[in-house]
């Protein structure tokens, strides 16, 4: 009985490790195919359009609301210490360092990652990938590489937009609604936010998040069981795995970047 359970456990772990291995092999293959993007640059632009432009409005609205909430919450905590003028610092640091990259990556995984998986999965189900191979077109270079690169390119831009709009949202609540001095909001922010330690690190984070979310999305689509149920499962897995790995990676990156201070 116990033996049987152990066998099931072993089988499951082996299957999981195998999937992980396939994901790495696919990644190495995509890295190897990166130079081919220069011959098919329009594919990259197309994916920037699908991944970036379509997520643009979502990020704009989400960023503004998150900024406004940070404005309210920060104000009420700071007001207890009579330090309302530091509101800009609190809003800017928490958004630029953490909330901007992380929430953008989570939204991106839900909005764009799932679409990628479904698209590539359906290509597999309808045997478009196989027919590409028949025509001597490498589906990895033609389909996967442009999407991966577009994801890595788009996410830092989206995160920057999120942060900028979030800080404006915080200013709207802090200055226009709660009456914090606008000069104090910006000047304290400027003297506390560092270009390298805070903003550059935020961008580096979002580059990693872009890599991991699109990699997962592309792999899940490419590795899907070619049935309609398989595609639906793969799509779910993309969102779940992306969200979890973004949060875990965020912890690791934060510990590396801000750990020693």
């Amino acid at each position: 009985m116990i033996l049987q359970q152990l066998i099931i456990l072993g089988k499951a772990s082996r299957a999981w490790l195998e999937r992980l291995g396939r994901a790495y092999i696919l990644f190495a293959y995509m890295v190897w195919g990166i130079p081919s993007i220069f011959r098919r640059f329009h594919l990259f632009i197309q994916q920037v359009y699908f991944l970036g432009v379509f997520s643009f409005l979502l990020i704009l609205i989400a960023g503004f609301f998150v900024g406004m909430v940070m404005g309210f919450q920060g104000y009420h905590t700071l007001a207890k210490f009579g330090a309302e003028s530091s509101l800009g610092v609190v809003v800017a640091l928490s958004i630029v360092r953490e909330l901007g990259p992380v929430i953008t990556a989570l939204l991106f995984a839900g909005r764009a990652g799932s679409a990628l998986t479904a698209e590539i999965g359906l290509m597999k189900v309808t045997e478009q990938l196989a027919s590409m191979e028949m025509m001597a077109v490498d589906p990895v270079k033609q389909v996967l590489v442009p999407r991966l690169l577009a994801g890595i390119f788009v996410l830092p831009l989206l995160a920057a937009i999120f942060s900028a709009v979030g800080i404006l949202g915080g200013e709207f609540v802090g200055v226009a609604v709660l009456g914090v001095d606008s000069g104090a909001y910006w000047s304290q922010m400027q003297s506390s936010v560092d270009i390298y330690n805070d903003i550059l690190n935020g961008i580096v984070k979002s580059i990693f998040f872009g890599l991991i979310t699109t990699w997962i999305a592309v792999f899940e689509g490419y590795d899907t069981v070619p049935t309609s149920e398989g595609v639906s499962r793969a799509t779910t897995r993309t969102v779940v795995y992306s969200a979890l790995s973004v949060l875990a990676l965020d912890f690791i990156l934060t510990a590396l970047m801000f750990g020693e201070h």
Binding site: A160, I161, A164
Partner: peptide, 16 residues
């Protein structure tokens, strides 16, 4: 817009 947002973060928000 993305690059503008980056510029705003660099010039207006940080101590560049």
């Amino acid at each position: 817009v993305g690059v503008l947002a980056l510029l705003m973060l660099a010039l207006n928000v940080s101590n560049l």
